[in-house]
Amino acid sequence: MIRALVALTTLLLLSACGGGGSGSSTPASTSVTPPTTLSNFATVTVDAGPPALDVGPNAYIQANVAYVSVTLCAPGTPNCQTIDHVQVDTGSVGLRIAEGVLSPTLLAALPQQEDSAGNPVGECYSFVDGYVFGSVRQADFQIGGETVSNMPLTVLGDAGAFSTPPRSCSAGGGANLDTVQNFGANGIIGIGVTTTDCGIACTTAGGYSSAIYYDCPSLGCGSIIARASSAAAPFQQLPNPVAAMATDNNGSILSLPAPPPPGRRP
């Protein structure tokens, strides 16, 4: 069973500028040589998932999930951390990281987004099997040679006012996916087909789509608030990280190695 999960390596190319095809002629070993003319790529790994999945009574190993590493820095500082096993998702939008994988030093230095009332902003986001909830913070984000300064992300399962998802967040059903083990990854980078994670629906107070933005005073998150939809600074909604890049921002290519010959494991 474990043998079926041998790591594959491929490329996540962070632009639509073409040229990815040259990386697809792959030897039977599982690594892909990046096209030398491109700097805007990140390596995708398919493996058993972060070690935190395989512990305790609910231990399991992941299969068929594409992971990348991303780097987050406190804005304008060298206080940085590289986070592995961030799931690549072409069906959602925005960067979401589990609170537990962030170093306390970095977490404390990531500023919380504030709303017009001066309160922190919280966000709920729905996936097909559940939901996540946490604080919206800002970080300098890096992947594959590209950077987005002051990019909003959601820190899933953050403490304090964010410790209990609002009822309107859990009302869509499914599991609370705020822990690494429940989620199956240390975080998720959504590079779907829209430039922000909610769009026009969240630009009106009370409005929502897959994303719901909340006013979060210290007593807990309550009102659903309006957040502007912009894929460039100053951000309010979580942007599509690719759309928010200064260059190479018009799309992405997920390039997988050719399948092995019939009957052979990769």
């Binding site: 609910n58 399991y60 099997d129 996916l177 429940n182």
Partner: peptide, 8 residues
């Protein structure tokens, strides 16, 4: 209590 990883 583990998630199913499947649609509801």
């Amino acid at each position: 209590g583990r998630r199913t990883h499947r649609p509801l």
